[in-house]
Amino acid sequence: MNSDFTQDYFALFALPQRFALDLALLERNWRAIAAEVHPDRFASAPDAERRRALMVATRVNEAYQTLKKPISRARYLLSLAGVDTQEETNTSMPADFLMLQMEWHEALADAKADSDIEALEKLSREIQSDMRELETALTQGIDHEHDLEGAAVLVRKLRFLEKIEQDTGDAIEALLY
């Protein structure tokens, strides 16, 4: 198989292997590569070449999606370093974090019961702001302190927040309809 299949995602986009990423550059490089390998470029090419284009374009999109989102980027960086984030198996969390989770879940349930879009949007902003804080902590943990086990805990926390932010978003959407 050619080198692009064994390269890691960062190398594919000629980007440094770290958490704090120039997202505009990532997007530009993805678009430049996607433009080269997209199956539409091979609309009149032989079958074998079209299949290859489909395969490469799929991988390029997968790489872009992985690096674009902070949580999957962190997860991927940790996996490259051989650290498993144990998101499915390890559910132990500090007590204060769990308390905050419970408060948010209650707030979400109340706002849903009251069909209160304002309250839902406020909750969504609050969670998003906490997510930004976790991302800052990830930059510190991965890029500067190389504390990968600590970073794995942050990824697990981010996963919790992502889930409740998604639920809040779904509740807002449900009220819009």
Partner: peptide, 18 residues
């Protein structure tokens, strides 16, 4: 497959690679 590699590398040239 080598040509596709080359095209990918060409595509990235001229960009401000960090």
């Amino acid at each position: 497959s080598r040509r596709m590699d080359r095209n990918i590398r060409r595509a990235l040239k001229g960009h401000n690679i960090a």
